[in-house]
Design a protein around this nucleic acid. Structure first.
Lengths: 339, 339
DNA sequence: TCGATCTATTGAGACGATTCAAAAGAATCT
DNA sequence: AGATTCTTTTGAATCGTCTCAATAGATCGA
């Protein structure tokens, strides 16, 4: 009930409010005796500094917003943890927002964050083209794109998704598969489109020897993967692909569930490879092959770029950082088959 | 760079700041003509309301903090989603903070949230006894305990963990196991202690026919579960338990990995049951039996209680809501064995 | 003892929005 | 027209903290 303010502390310690503020912010310029007196008063009253007022006055916030596509996807949790580990060292708070792939929710979160005058925003945008984001940046909130390459107007941190798609499918081709399915989500999601493009490139390199099917779910979720799995299981065996490349691991887990439910064996009847290499991939019914991304590093780098921009807004040059993915082969795609 | 304020808008629209504020907050009392003029000015300037100043003046925040034990545990992600779904309807933001089971981190998050003068805090505390939390509440920030029963001084939402532990172990006993291991974490975590107590109760009910071993890891993580699994695998077969009850699902997944790594079959050599029934449990190498908790409901109820307290602080009576867990039997404990 | 320096403390504006009593303007009635 | 009521608009005060120029007090040298 009783939220004390600096004035009450000043009164009790018999000093001016300016002195209390000094004790809080530059204790070294205050004489030890008064400092002690002020600390006592603070403790006695249970005074807690009002960061809202401070922020209003100082004009600079100590929180950054992180807007992710799906908090239920451990990939983003790891990205968030990477970001938070750096933020912590800078006495900064990361607030995690979930757009859940919905542009409306994303927009609402961005509005809120801008209204709160956060120090900056890290975001994995729902849609590649986002004029709203550029306006936001133009109005003065630094934005760093995460897991999505920027066009030069902003900083970004990403992993080469095209390359990732390529090494995934090249691996399946190398294992002897001649009929490969890409199980993805909305192509409007840049990551999906890029991974698909990589897959196509790998197929093209075979000179027509391998066929690529494409099937998309409304969202990159366990349910989405399961739904595609159901459709595949329903196909006559000779039309069925022998391998599937899922746009991410949680879809792959869903796909795997569908296979199990229909008695199809992985990798004997059908090989699976996912994307992200989340921890649960290794613990799946059949340990999943996957394309690994440096998840925490992604988050750490993103906030590094942001802090850099905030520290020196004038001489800051936007940068696009790109990491390389790599392949992790596990049981789900380990089998070599004769074409 | 250019963050406009209400004054600039007022200037451009040739009205007073009071009128701009009215347009923003009670547009109906402003004449249509001026309202239009103000909206135009807002759009032209790209004005975005400064929520910080607003909050300072109004004294009430539109954000609540949610401090969880482990964001990497999908259980808490689901709780968070439940909370957020309700918050959204009240135009409120949920900021998710991860204590990662560390009292220091928890404390720092609480400090920050209090300094930000959040509307309230939902928390799964690291330690059962937490005087700090009570002081915080006494100073005026409403607190609701999540997944941890309160003593009456606060609101809380929990699931009966003792009952959960009991039904889990009773199920194993019923399946014929006579040597059961409880794989837990620090007993200072209330949930762990309660589930363990439930397990003991189920054992006691057998009148000495069944033996309970207990083994704890430093944290309720995949790695923790794997570590305990390693130790179990290293035991001579006749000393090995035939069933294990893990304090949560992610530990169970780790335990399962260790079994697979050492060629022990589940459930033939050893049955496993977890806790939480996270989505990944059903998708595990061997689909996991688990004790299900109403995860989203937990989050929704918690924020309901908080909003209730905030709405009517005077006549609010603290309440302790308790839900019942239930058993989900899957392959990992399906086998009946002869004692 | 009187300045000159240096150190500690003070207190009056900001910061940007909201509120509300009061003023101004419009509309209605006699 | 003048009085009365109703509708709009105004602008000063406020929220809690920080900043910084100004002041007070202490220390030192001559």
């Amino acid at each position: 009930m009783a939220t004390r303010n600096i004035k009450e502390v000043a009164q009790l310690a018999r000093v001016s409010v300016g002195t209390v503020s000094n004790v809080l912010n530059r204790p070294e310029i205050v004489s030890p005796a008064t400092r002690e007196r002020v600390f006592d008063a603070i403790k006695k009253l249970g005074f807690v500094r009002n960061e809202v007022a401070r922020h209003l006055r100082v004009g600079r916030s100590r929180t950054v917003g992180l807007v992710v596509l799906d908090v239920a996807n451990p990939f983003f949790v790891d990205v968030a943890q990477g970001a938070e580990s750096v933020a912590e060292d800078h006495d900064t708070m990361v607030v995690l927002c979930n757009s859940a792939g919905d542009p409306g929710r994303e927009r609402r979160h961005l509005d809120q964050l801008e209204q709160q005058r956060v120090m900056g925003i890290l975001i994995t945008p729902v849609e590649a083209e986002n004029p709203w984001l550029e306006e936001l940046a133009a109005r003065g909130t630094p934005v760093v794109l995460v897991d999505s390459p920027a066009t030069g107007l902003q900083c970004s941190v990403a992993v080469d998704d095209r390359l990732g798609g390529q090494i995934a499918v090249a691996h399946l081709v190398e294992r002897g598969h001649r009929r490969v399915l890409f199980a993805g989500g909305p192509m409007s999601v840049k990551q999906v489109a890029d991974r698909h493009a990589g897959a196509e490139a790998a197929i093209a390199a075979t000179g027509g020897a391998v066929e690529l099917l494409t099937c998309t779910a409304p969202a990159l979720t366990v349910a989405g993967g399961r739904a595609i799995g159901e459709r595949v299981a329903a196909l006559p065996p000779d039309e069925r692909p022998t391998a599937v490349f899922c746009a991410n691991d949680i879809m792959a887990l869903g796909f795997l569930q569908a296979m199990a439910a229909h008695g199809l064996r992985v990798p004997e009847d059908l090989a699976i490879i996912g994307y992200d290499d989340i921890d649960f991939a290794a613990a799946a019914a059949v340990p999943l092959s996957s394309v690994r991304q440096p998840r925490e590093l992604l988050g750490r780098t993103a906030i590094d770029l942001l802090l850099e921009e905030v520290a020196e807004p004038e001489q800051h040059r936007h940068r696009q950082v790109i990491f390389q993915p790599d392949l992790v082969v596990r049981e789900s795609s380990a089998l070599r088959r004769d074409p």
